[in-house]
Design a protein around this nucleic acid. Sequence first.
DNA 1: CGCCTAAGTAAGTATTTTATGAATTAACAT
DNA 2: ATGTTAATTCATAAAATACTTACTTAGGCG
Lengths: 233, 233
Amino acid sequence: MRAGQSGNDGASDMTGPAKKRTPRQRDPERTRAQLLEAALHEFADHGFHGARVDRITRAVGCNPRLLYHYFGSKEKLYIAALEHIFADIRAQERELDLDRQEPVQAMRRLVEFTYDFFDGNPLFVKLTRNENLLEGRFIADIAAIRTSSQPLLDAIGAIMARGQAQGVFGHRYDPLQIYVTIVALSAHHLNNGHTLSAIFGIDLLSRDWRSARRAHTVDLVMNALSGADSPQP
Amino acid sequence: MRAGQSGNDGASDMTGPAKKRTPRQRDPERTRAQLLEAALHEFADHGFHGARVDRITRAVGCNPRLLYHYFGSKEKLYIAALEHIFADIRAQERELDLDRQEPVQAMRRLVEFTYDFFDGNPLFVKLTRNENLLEGRFIADIAAIRTSSQPLLDAIGAIMARGQAQGVFGHRYDPLQIYVTIVALSAHHLNNGHTLSAIFGIDLLSRDWRSARRAHTVDLVMNALSGADSPQP
DNA sequence: CGCCTAAGTAAGTATTTTATGAATTAACAT
DNA sequence: ATGTTAATTCATAAAATACTTACTTAGGCG
């Protein structure tokens, strides 16, 4: 707290209160980062329209003007937040390294990883939900969002092919369908936790239920892939 | 601008249409219904915070005051809309009648029904999404929302039990997990269609993809239930 | 017919909320 | 120091937006 208190010079302030003359230590990077972090939470909790720039700046404890100085507008701040959160998933996905493992193990690892990602990133879940509410108005413009998606699908396709060749996997599904399935099983109860919980009178967001859900998800996907063939109509 | 006078002074109106002199035929029920219908779409498309009462009344072509006359506030209108859309699903669900069919067929029917319900009710999907964005602030207060949920779970449990007894189903899962799974597989791509489409560069909301998804969903659930046992760790 | 209530209209207002213009102050290179 | 640039504050514009007050008119009912 080295900031130049030398407090009493605040006396020069004419308005009565004269409280926090503390002129906010200059640190543009920190300020920008704090704003982005606060925005992430604000947009996640209230959506774009429900979010208030005022709440964001108050959370950071800075002047509203700064938000516009650094980000230009509420919309641009939202885009920055979206971009930031999507960068994370790409980074994490890159560490998966599925090609070197046996098919069954690789698939299990992918499912567990995916489940844990959503379970551990409520901000991502919420921001994504809101972006879909906005009909994906901004997501398309974010560059580098499709970059590592094809590799992921390829990896899934490769795992299934290998598994089939080895005879451990049965019916071969479309990799995209499988991936959407994994994500659906992992995230739907998070996306719709409040309504589902209200409808069934059980808290689907509790630690216990989520833990059971994890096992169920892994179970189901492995079961689907290893099953010989789908029951015929 | 002493409004009220008779028709032809519409010439003073600058915008072309000049329709509004017609003093809206009196029909309270119709007005109320129209407001509710418009609200359903407005809240679905923009969420609670993004929705504009002004747009709703303009869509109906009535005076803003009427909205408050009939519903009291934006919030109460939202609740009315939520209540209305949730009443539908309950009604439809009641027609299922799963107990009289063979287990495999009953389950297939349930999955298809559930898939088609979400696929055919975008308003329901969107309103639900928004209600979850609001952390279920209103859903809990809506009476009769839990009414027919337990019967549904019981029905699922019964189907699985019968299937197991007949030897057509293998491992027995928790009915709630199964139901959440069915819903997840049916609705996740609708809930997250825009982001997923952007990420993979494929339109998951197209008729073709949704049709493929339907088959995949049925396939997966039937496969999961009929599978002997899950692959062991 | 004439009155009374409720449906409907016109025209605000109060408040919130995003956004800026311009002054002020710190940091830093020269 | 000094001058320049960028960070921060102050004060407020400007626009939305939910909601109201005060009126008008239709139409059922005695």
